[in-house]
Amino acid sequence: MNYEVIVTCAVTGAGDTVGKHPAIPVTPKQIADAAIEAAKAGATVAHCHVRDPETGKGTRDVHLYKEVVDRIRSSGTDIIINLTAGMGGDLEIGGGEDPFKFGKATDLVGPLTRLAHVEELLPEMCTLDCGTLNFGDGDYTYISTPNMLRAGAKRVKELGVKPELEIFDTGHLWFAKQMVKEGLFDGAPLFQLCLGIPWGAEANTTTMKAMVDNLPEGALWAGFGIGRMQMPMVAQAMLLGGNVRVGLEDNIWLDKGVHASNGSLTERACEIITRLGARPLTPAEGRKKLGLKARN
């Protein structure tokens, strides 16, 4: 069991949740305020996407990321900033017998373009989505090839940013370990086990334990489940020795019929942690555990 737990709050994501919740953070101010809210509720890390303020859709706009980061950094509230680098891997295959007639959801760019905001803003952490995945039903696929990942990992290492290795299936874990063998990361690698997204790894005890049993020796890791499995996976990750993640990116409900906020989800996770006899780490403690240096 892990008794000193890093709590990540993923405050908005890029999914189609805006119309399903009355207060999904959309504007840079709302996203920054959500990260600050999570910090005050006990989060160690804020994981941030940005959205187009006009449409609510996910975007790669560097200027929006800059506003979010500037607002958090100038707020006087301490939180480790972890920016997604997963945007730009979307490929919607054409339906039926026209697979090359790509759909409007397609936003596919190279590995270094996906890091443009990381290059400019130098957050303490960013994500690397460690493989290609059939993402839900239909024809939507997330693309992240081995060579793309090697190029991204190399650049993140050069920038001195800590990568969080997003693992959506067992093959992703296999390749992430290969990158570790190739020396593409400094320090102990950090794995994030992302469970419950169709059609990746299921959010259950058996799947999480199988992944944990295949982590390299000395690895730091966290795990989460989406939807109703968010809080059960908080407890499960702790019991297996890991850290946790909650937030509106992964789950919009606190209880049945009760919309959550990032603060309420973080508070619920911290309550589970303390009731199991452990404690959530402060951002300063999280930096020490992760081997980070605070950015000015």
Rank of each mutant, 00 (worst) to 15 (best):
V68K: 08
K209F: 07
T266V: 15
D78E: 15
G86R: 01
A222H: 08
C270Y: 08
E166V: 06
I143S: 09
Q178R: 15
C270W: 01
S74N: 13
L159Q: 09
D213Y: 12
V118N: 07
A222T: 11
M231Y: 07
A188W: 02
M233I: 05
R275E: 14
A38F: 07
G13I: 00
L281E: 07
T145A: 02
L108R: 07
P232E: 06
R268D: 10
A294L: 12
A23Q: 04
P22H: 05
A43T: 08
T205M: 04
N204K: 08
I31E: 02
K288A: 14
T106R: 00
M1K: 05
K104T: 10
G242C: 03
H47G: 00
R287T: 01
N251G: 01
M87H: 06
A41Q: 06
G13V: 00
V5C: 08
T266E: 07
I167G: 01
L239P: 00
K57C: 03
R114E: 04
G13R: 00
G152A: 15
K162E: 13
E37L: 09
D107M: 08
R51H: 03
I273G: 01
A38Q: 11
A176K: 06
V7E: 09
I197L: 13
D52M: 07
D33Y: 00
G96K: 09
M238I: 15
A260V: 01
W199H: 14
D250E: 06
L133T: 06
T132R: 03
G227N: 14
C9K: 02
T141L: 15
M231N: 07
Q192L: 10
A260P: 03
G223T: 03
E164G: 06
L115I: 06
C48V: 15
L165I: 09
Q178E: 15
H63K: 11
I93N: 01
G171N: 05
E271P: 04
R287K: 11
I31V: 15
